[in-house]
Simulated assay, not measured.
Amino acid sequence: MRISEILRRKGAEVVTIVPEATVRELLGVLAERNVGAVVVSRGGGTVDGIVSERDIVRRLHTVGAELLDRPVADIMTAVVHTCSPEDRVESLRSTMTEHRVRHLPVLRDGRLAGIVSIGDVVKSAISELQTEREQLVHYLQQ
Score class of each variant (00 low, 15 high):
Arg2Gly: 02
Ile3Thr: 08
Ser4Tyr: 04
Glu5Arg: 10
Arg9Ala: 15
Glu13His: 13
Val14Gly: 09
Val15Ile: 14
Thr16Asn: 10
Val18Thr: 15
Pro19Val: 01
Ala21Lys: 00
Thr22Tyr: 01
Val29Tyr: 01
Glu32Arg: 12
Asn34Asp: 14
Val38Tyr: 01
Val40Asp: 01
Val40Trp: 00
Arg42Thr: 13
Gly44Cys: 06
Val47Gln: 01
Gly49Ala: 06
Val51Pro: 03
Ile56Met: 03
Arg58Asn: 12
Thr62Met: 12
Ala65His: 08
Pro71Gln: 08
Ala73Lys: 11
Ala73Cys: 09
Ile75Pro: 11
Val79Glu: 10
Val80Tyr: 02
His81Pro: 11
Ser84Ala: 07
Arg88Lys: 11
Arg88Ala: 13
Arg88Asn: 12
Leu92Ala: 11
Ser94Asp: 15
Met96Glu: 13
Thr97Ile: 15
Arg100Tyr: 12
Val101Asp: 06
Arg102Gln: 08
Arg102Pro: 06
His103Asp: 11
Pro105Ala: 00
Val106Pro: 01
Leu107Glu: 08
Leu107Trp: 03
Leu107His: 08
Arg108Tyr: 09
Asp109Pro: 09
Gly110Thr: 14
Gly110Asp: 12
Arg111Tyr: 06
Arg111Phe: 07
Ala113Ile: 07
Ile115Asn: 02
Ile115Gly: 03
Val116Lys: 08
Ser117Ala: 09
Ser117Leu: 10
Gly119Pro: 06
Asp120Thr: 13
Val121Arg: 12
Lys123His: 10
Ala125Ile: 14
Ile126Thr: 10
Glu128Pro: 02
Leu129Glu: 04
Leu129Met: 05
Gln130Asp: 15
Glu132Tyr: 07
Leu136Gly: 00
Val137Met: 07
His138Met: 06
Tyr139Leu: 15
Tyr139Val: 10
Leu140Glu: 13
Leu140Ser: 12
Leu140Val: 15
Gln141Ile: 07
Gln142Lys: 10
